[in-house]
């Protein structure tokens, strides 16, 4: 089938501001959006820039605004979009070129929440034991691929880019609720700052945007509950998340 693809283009070496360009490509309905972008890049206009690597939704390179929604270009099929497809870079970051944005502010926030296991006790000769229930407590947030689809879909982040954003909270959650971790109180304090979890307004854009189906809102709610109760407590039931 033939589809028209409208792409937001910007090359700082020649353009004063971003503009739209339209391309026509012949695709299979089951092709991914990234396949269509490849066709343009390789055989029509080699100046198009777009990050991507694994091509199956695991590496987190190609989160883009596709038909108005944040999603991965390699996990979105053409047949689900119709005959006209619009593709733009993620919102809220400086555009380097075309669909490529400066991710450094995003990774700076990731680094700010101590995204690593802290345990200064001498480890045993074998593995640290952890029950399947303790492991399940943070399973959902281990799936994050740092694609930034959630953070850049969040109105609180658009309103104030100092907000640490949902992705960094997801990363913090992964360690706060890991029974092996000893720095969970410090991490909670980082998220208790005025740039932290209280900025969330429960819009749920993050949940909709996450290509890994992480219940981001629930993770944020659990972090807030831990802040209120001062304990890591039990996981929230789904109807308690709001």
């Amino acid at each position: 089938m033939e589809v028209r693809i409208r792409i937001q283009r910007y090359n700082p070496e020649v353009d004063e501001k971003p503009h739209w360009e339209e391309y026509t490509v012949e695709v299979e309905p089951t092709d991914r959006v990234i396949d269509a972008l490849h066709q343009i890049k390789w055989f029509q206009d080699g100046t198009l820039a777009v990050r991507r690597s694994c091509l199956h939704g695991i590496c987190g390179s190609d989160a883009l605004v596709i038909n108005g929604r944040n999603r991965l270009a390699c996990k979105t099929l053409v047949r689900d979009l119709g005959k006209v497809i619009t593709v733009a870079p993620l919102r809220g970051f400086r555009v380097i070129k075309d669909l490529v944005v400066d991710m450094e502010p995003f990774f700076r926030k990731f680094r700010s929440v101590m995204p690593y296991l802290v345990n200064d006790e001498r480890p045993p000769a074998h593995e640290r034991l952890q029950s399947p229930e303790e492991r399940a407590r943070f399973d959902d947030t281990t799936k994050c691929i740092l694609c930034a689809a959630c953070t850049t879909a969040c109105p609180s982040f658009w309103a104030d880019s100092r907000y640490v954003g949902p992705a960094a909270i997801v990363q913090a959650h992964r360690f706060i609720f890991d029974s092996r971790d000893q720095a969970w109180r410090e991490r909670l304090q980082i998220l208790n700052e005025n740039t932290g979890v209280w900025r969330c307004r429960n819009v749920f854009n993050c949940v909709e945007a996450c290509p890994r189906d992480i219940n981001v809102n629930k993770a944020i709610a659990e972090v807030r509950q831990a802040l209120i109760t001062g304990s890591r407590g039990l996981p929230l039931e789904d109807d308690e998340v709001h």
Binding site: Y116, L117, N119, P123, H126, E127, R128, L129, Q130, S131, P132, E134, R135, F138, D139, T142, F175, D178, R180, D181
Partner: peptide, 13 residues
Amino acid sequence: HLGLPFDRTPEGK
């Protein structure tokens, strides 16, 4: 020990 979240057996291994 570095933090890798392996799946666990009922005994926690």
